[in-house]
Protein backbone atom coordinates (compact mmCIF):
# COMPACT_ATOMS: atom_id res chain seq x y z
CA UNK A 1 0.00 0.00 0.00
CA UNK A 2 1.34 3.41 -0.94
CA UNK A 3 2.38 5.77 1.82
CA UNK A 4 0.85 8.63 -0.14
CA UNK A 5 -2.85 8.44 -0.97
CA UNK A 6 -5.31 11.10 -2.05
CA UNK A 7 -9.08 11.04 -1.83
CA UNK A 8 -11.53 12.36 -4.40
CA UNK A 9 -11.18 15.92 -3.06
CA UNK A 10 -7.90 16.27 -4.99
CA UNK A 11 -8.32 18.93 -7.67
CA UNK A 12 -4.82 18.63 -9.13
CA UNK A 13 -3.65 22.05 -7.90
CA UNK A 14 -0.07 20.68 -7.39
CA UNK A 15 0.45 22.44 -4.04
CA UNK A 16 1.85 19.14 -2.71
CA UNK A 17 4.20 18.74 -5.66
CA UNK A 18 5.51 22.28 -5.33
CA UNK A 19 6.05 22.01 -1.57
CA UNK A 20 7.51 18.52 -1.27
CA UNK A 21 11.04 19.06 0.14
CA UNK A 22 12.23 15.67 -1.09
CA UNK A 23 11.04 15.94 -4.69
CA UNK A 24 9.00 12.79 -4.09
CA UNK A 25 5.86 14.05 -5.80
CA UNK A 26 5.40 14.74 -9.46
CA UNK A 27 2.77 14.76 -12.13
CA UNK A 28 2.30 13.74 -15.73
CA UNK A 29 -0.04 15.56 -18.09
CA UNK A 30 -1.19 13.39 -20.99
CA UNK A 31 -3.81 14.53 -23.48
CA UNK A 32 -6.76 15.31 -21.25
CA UNK A 33 -5.57 13.82 -17.96
CA UNK A 34 -3.21 14.88 -15.16
CA UNK A 35 -1.73 12.06 -13.07
CA UNK A 36 -0.19 12.74 -9.70
CA UNK A 37 2.83 10.53 -8.92
CA UNK A 38 4.61 9.59 -5.71
CA UNK A 39 8.10 8.11 -5.37
CA UNK A 40 8.53 6.13 -2.14
CA UNK A 41 12.32 5.98 -2.46
CA UNK A 42 12.53 9.76 -2.35
CA UNK A 43 9.79 10.34 0.22
CA UNK A 44 11.12 11.62 3.56
CA UNK A 45 7.74 10.98 5.28
CA UNK A 46 7.65 14.56 6.55
CA UNK A 47 3.91 14.95 5.85
CA UNK A 48 4.38 18.37 4.24
CA UNK A 49 1.96 17.30 1.48
CA UNK A 50 -0.72 16.47 4.03
CA UNK A 51 -0.09 19.74 5.87
CA UNK A 52 -0.08 21.90 2.76
CA UNK A 53 -3.03 20.46 0.82
CA UNK A 54 -5.76 23.12 0.60
CA UNK A 55 -8.32 20.43 -0.26
CA UNK A 56 -7.47 18.11 2.65
CA UNK A 57 -7.14 15.45 0.01
CA UNK A 58 -3.93 13.80 1.21
CA UNK A 59 -4.65 10.89 3.52
CA UNK A 60 -2.42 9.09 5.95
CA UNK A 61 -5.13 7.61 8.13
CA UNK A 62 -4.59 4.25 6.46
CA UNK A 63 -1.14 4.20 8.06
CA UNK A 64 -2.55 4.76 11.53
CA UNK A 65 -5.06 1.91 11.70
CA UNK A 66 -2.51 -0.53 13.15
CA UNK A 67 -3.09 -3.04 10.38
CA UNK A 68 -0.56 -5.72 9.53
CA UNK A 69 0.33 -6.24 5.89
CA UNK A 70 1.15 -9.83 4.92
CA UNK A 71 4.53 -9.72 3.24
CA UNK A 72 5.38 -13.42 2.83
CA UNK A 73 3.67 -16.82 3.28
CA UNK A 74 5.86 -19.90 3.57
CA UNK A 75 5.33 -23.59 4.21
CA UNK A 76 5.43 -24.28 7.94
CA UNK A 77 6.77 -27.46 9.50
CA UNK A 78 5.31 -28.63 12.79
CA UNK A 79 6.51 -31.06 15.40
CA UNK A 80 5.43 -34.45 14.11
CA UNK A 81 4.45 -35.53 17.61
CA UNK A 82 2.53 -32.61 19.11
CA UNK A 83 2.00 -30.32 16.13
CA UNK A 84 3.79 -27.31 17.65
CA UNK A 85 5.02 -24.92 14.92
CA UNK A 86 8.78 -25.28 14.52
CA UNK A 87 10.08 -23.44 11.47
CA UNK A 88 9.54 -23.09 7.76
CA UNK A 89 10.47 -25.67 5.17
CA UNK A 90 12.58 -23.04 3.47
CA UNK A 91 14.61 -22.51 6.63
CA UNK A 92 15.23 -26.26 6.79
CA UNK A 93 16.45 -26.23 3.21
CA UNK A 94 18.79 -23.32 3.89
CA UNK A 95 20.06 -24.84 7.11
CA UNK A 96 20.56 -28.21 5.39
CA UNK A 97 23.06 -26.56 3.14
CA UNK A 98 24.95 -25.07 6.08
CA UNK A 99 24.73 -27.83 8.66
CA UNK A 100 25.93 -31.39 8.43
CA UNK A 101 23.14 -32.71 10.61
CA UNK A 102 19.64 -32.72 9.25
CA UNK A 103 17.41 -30.32 11.17
CA UNK A 104 14.46 -32.53 11.79
CA UNK A 105 11.22 -30.70 12.52
CA UNK A 106 11.01 -31.39 16.24
CA UNK A 107 10.32 -29.01 19.08
CA UNK A 108 12.90 -28.65 21.84
CA UNK A 109 11.12 -31.19 24.08
CA UNK A 110 10.77 -33.88 21.45
CA UNK A 111 14.20 -33.22 19.99
CA UNK A 112 15.68 -34.02 23.41
CA UNK A 113 13.58 -37.22 23.58
CA UNK A 114 14.57 -38.18 20.07
CA UNK A 115 18.25 -37.70 20.84
CA UNK A 116 17.92 -39.70 24.04
CA UNK A 117 16.29 -42.49 22.02
CA UNK A 118 19.10 -42.34 19.46
CA UNK A 119 21.71 -42.59 22.22
CA UNK A 120 19.85 -45.54 23.70
CA UNK A 121 19.79 -47.30 20.33
CA UNK A 122 23.51 -46.59 19.87
CA UNK A 123 24.30 -48.30 23.17
CA UNK A 124 22.38 -51.36 22.12
Amino acid sequence: MSFFQVNDKCNGCLACVQNCPAGALGFVDKKDTRTLRHNMARCARCLTCWRICPQEAVEFEHLLVNRWDEVATLILLRCRVCGEPIHTARLTEDLDQKLVDMTEPLCARHRARSKAKERLLDRR
Binding site: P21, A22, G23, R42, A44, C46, T48
Partner: peptide, 8 residues
Amino acid sequence: TICRAGGE
Protein backbone atom coordinates in the same frame (compact mmCIF):
# COMPACT_ATOMS: atom_id res chain seq x y z
CA THR B 1 15.67 17.36 3.49
CA ILE B 2 12.73 18.08 5.76
CA CYS B 3 14.33 21.25 7.18
CA ARG B 4 15.10 22.39 3.64
CA ALA B 5 18.84 22.58 4.04
CA GLY B 6 20.40 19.46 2.55
CA GLY B 7 17.94 17.64 0.30
CA GLU B 8 18.22 17.02 -3.40
